[in-house]
Nucleic acid binder design. Sequence first.
DNA 1: GGTAATTGTTTAAGGTATACACAGAACTTC
DNA 2: GAAGTTCTGTGTATACCTTAAACAATTACC
Lengths: 312, 312
Amino acid sequence: MDEEQNDLDLPRGVALAWGVAANPQRGPKREMSIERIVEIAIEIADASGLGAVSMSSVATRLGFTTMALYRYVTAKDDLLLLMSEHGVGMPPLSITESADWRSGLTAWSREVLAVFAAHPWLLDIPISSMPNTPNNLAWLEAGLDVLEKTPLDWQERVSCVLLLNGQARWQGNIQRGYAQAGNTMNGELSETDRASAHILATFVTPEAFPVLSRAVTAGVFEDDDNPFEFGLARILDGIEYYMASAGSRAPDPEPVVDEFRRDEGVKRAREVVKDAESRLREARKKEREAIKKAEERAKKQAEADARAAAKR
Amino acid sequence: MDEEQNDLDLPRGVALAWGVAANPQRGPKREMSIERIVEIAIEIADASGLGAVSMSSVATRLGFTTMALYRYVTAKDDLLLLMSEHGVGMPPLSITESADWRSGLTAWSREVLAVFAAHPWLLDIPISSMPNTPNNLAWLEAGLDVLEKTPLDWQERVSCVLLLNGQARWQGNIQRGYAQAGNTMNGELSETDRASAHILATFVTPEAFPVLSRAVTAGVFEDDDNPFEFGLARILDGIEYYMASAGSRAPDPEPVVDEFRRDEGVKRAREVVKDAESRLREARKKEREAIKKAEERAKKQAEADARAAAKR
DNA sequence: GGTAATTGTTTAAGGTATACACAGAACTTC
DNA sequence: GAAGTTCTGTGTATACCTTAAACAATTACC
């Protein structure tokens, strides 16, 4: 079979994400695991941002040398891909259980936003292509699932989900800016906000910006309730409007799927992904002990270093 | 006056963007200019991406030392901000000349997209807050201008422009991915695309992804006409739909602006920004010669280095 | 038991941003 | 005009970053 060849064709990170990376047999036992590495990297990113995630920081936190990571990950890009995949996670079941498509897509958007709020660094990882990895595809699947039984064709459904994804990403980006500004000076105006207000007051004159200046004096930039709920509602309105006109166009060209088989399929999807995850996770328990051992070794090493420094 | 204090309060990059950075009198004549630096940085980014823009690369291309740049820019962030500001440029007048708001916003979106297509690296510069700088505010102004005489209030108008901005950013991001994939293997499928197709064929089974797999077999991922025109149309539909319901709500609360004064204002805005730009540009001509001189010096330096290396 | 493969470590190369001290240029003031 | 002040571009140095290559130790297969 050429399936193994196919696996080799995949970018390493993607293969890892799907859990199809070949595990070797011959050498000494592994003391870390990809999952643990990704986990720690995400911890660091959650705490200090994506900029704080370096090969060095991750390795040190695990009690190993920097280069040891390269036995698990071919490059930092792989690690970022895996972080992204693990960070988004699986879409919650509540989405597909929604009553109608509109509440479903609303739930979908809110959940995506919640993910971005939990892991803001996800927004710093650039996305270059269509989703490739299981969890990301599962989110797309959930969105498409919600749009079943709508008069849209497949292309349009995918477009809708992508549209909402973009909106969520944009909204998450701006909301993170707000959150950061708010965190710095709790309650009061942040430095950035004060500077921004100065700029608006100084430069946005009625002569230079006739329309914008009126918006500013109307206080648009002051109240911090975000302007994005509005955007989401407008998008959903637009989709609904389009459906109304498309509904009279042609009936759903897809064969209606047996309801039972569909639900079965959703469950099966979760199992497949979970299986891939668990395959990566199986070394976990034994590893805990190995980590402890490694930390002890690191401590011993640190002591040795201290002794060496003392001699000098 | 405390205006000077205000200037000092501003982040350096922002002050530079507004052309209000104090130029010193005392020392030797400057041989570079901020504008030239930004120009070269943009050239590099256009040719080789934002990753290729380093202090070293920009300085070398200008024929100066890396550290010389820090006499013009306090940090690389400043340079990025200025690149962003110069890269977006001013919105074309054609936008505000549109007949109605819908064609106006369509034009606005297309122009933003054109900017992203011309300078894809703009998408790699993260935006953390509301627009601060003249050109970016001018784009917002243009969008708001288009929405004059609509029943929306100020908050809603800003929300609409932000919504379209997000959509354009998202669309630009994905389109860049397409463009890159297409460039690598002209005509044929790129490596990434082949891998992606493999993944879809191998892993997106009807059992694991019941809905998505049908979309794949329907060819959604194959035809490369982008799915974003659809998104833009849906957003505009949504706004239109909302206007129709909001129109009966209350009349435009804003005083209608004298048409002449408004047009005057737009022109004045352009002049203000152009003025700031030209203030930065004034050293340009003399500088050309200085650059040549610097390049000669660099060449001489290179020869000296070569000679020194030969001695070793 | 010998061989081959794989581990984590060490060492090192080449890249990044930027802090600091310095010689010289040009303006200000005497 | 001379002296002093201020700013320029340069050279040097530091502290990071990713990752390539050689190495001893460990484990599995024959």
